[in-house]
Design a protein around this nucleic acid. Structure first.
Lengths: 244, 244
DNA sequence: GAGTGGTCTAGACCACTGA
DNA sequence: CAGTGGTCTAGACCACTCG
């Protein structure tokens, strides 16, 4: 039994290079949206061939840590762009229209994590977290009620004031102001009956069926940095998923 | 306006090779589970370098059409193996245990497709379809109620008799006996209230919240070949999804 | 035109599998 | 051991972007 069950001892060179580049990203050597050095520069820096650097970057681009743009360079991925906004929000209107969404901040409070939250975020129960509640509107109607839990240590200075001013995706705010970048996430989806609170906020009948989406988001090195519980009204929207 | 909006005119060589290999797969030159020719053989056959064949196979392996096995060869992917059974069934027990599942065939009837079914399968309303209903059990308890619609033309000879005898994943049966291989699928997920039928079959209360999963499955060339509507009891299971 | 990523080749060697 | 896929290199040329 090992904590990392499938970690081979000897990694190919391109994976070691990918690891070095990831560490530079984690360390903030290049900021989201910026270009990283060219393949030839990186090859010189790491004393390997351009082909090996290419393969390393291929991996990181496949994992959406980097974005390649032919003729321009390779860039650090960011959540602040239109193109990537719906990578983590998988809700779409049934009629296929491209609705603009708006966000309404409801609440932000500092608290001790519940056992469940502490376990999901892999922090001791003594370490404080922020709980944030907000609503998402499609075409003016509330569709998503989100509760977020964030380790306070990583989001020092995050206030309700700041959240109520901000417009745009939360993950954009997190990466720009706190240097916390979401790389991947795991979701658990269930059908639940709306409780009184959720029913009132989402403007559905009490007990109405809602989609419950529990998400844990991870940053570099698979460190969990956000727990999120969303309740989706799926009367005229659906969660879309592609299996491949 | 074009039917295929993002099809570039000039494809790189490795993509043309990938297309040729895909056509051979579609045509049945190699059967699921079998090995395809080695990279060097394919390179000779297509008059390109091994590296170009490698890149073509890389693409097809990433799309799960092929499976590479170092030292052994490259194999046609199949749905009849343990490893791939849960690629399309994303339901997992909350407690993380590895439950064996069993299937119970309920019904199979030939019918005219509804407008909705005909549109999803991209067939004329005059072309008959098969409707199949079945239950999935985890640890002896019913958890999934599935309705499937299949174009009759592709599944000639499929009978309730055959379905009730068969044990194993349906997609394994489809590829082995009808040469219809599922490559990818798109799902739309909603929360709904159980109707009387579903409540009785899934042993939940009437009106209980259920996960509704609509799936369209595609074979080679993005041709839709199955519509499926599943109702999941998520009281002790969840739909798992990885965002990346 | 210079600089970037993208493709293609040829060859050497490594790692794994199975007879 | 031979045969397979996996890695790494070096070099040539293509396609795209931008000044």
């Amino acid at each position: 039994m090992s904590a990392v069950p499938d970690a081979p001892l000897f990694q190919p060179l391109y994976r070691q290079i990918a690891e070095l580049i990831t560490r530079s990203l984690d360390g903030g050597e290049w900021k989201p949206g910026e270009a990283i050095p060219s393949e030839l520069e990186l090859a010189a820096r790491f004393k390997v061939s351009q082909g090996t650097v290419r393969k390393a970057i291929d991996e990181l681009a496949a994992a959406h840590l980097l974005v390649r743009r032919q003729g321009k360079g390779t860039f650090v991925a960011t959540h602040s762009e239109e193109r990537t906004q719906f990578r983590f929000l998988r809700l779409a209107p049934d009629d296929g229209s491209a609705e603009r969404l708006s966000r309404k901040f409801l609440d932000c409070r500092r608290m001790r994590p519940s056992a469940e939250v502490a376990q999901a975020l892999d922090i001791p129960g003594s370490q404080a977290v922020l709980q944030v509640r907000r609503l998402l509107y499609f075409r003016g109607a509330p569709v998503v009620l989100d509760d977020l839990w964030l380790p306070l240590a990583l989001f020092k200075g995050l206030t309700g004031q700041r959240l109520s001013e901000y417009e745009g995706p939360l993950y954009g705010l997190f990466e720009a102001e706190f240097g916390v970048r979401m790389i991947r996430a795991e979701e658990q989806i269930r059908a639940v009956a709306a409780d009184a609170d959720a029913a009132a906020l989402l403007e559905v009948g009490p007990g109405a069926p809602l989609l419950s989406v529990d998400r844990v988001s991870f940053t570099y090195g698979d460190r969990p940095v956000e727990l999120r519980r969303g309740l989706y009204d799926t009367r005229s929207h659906h969660y879309r998923n592609r299996l491949s």
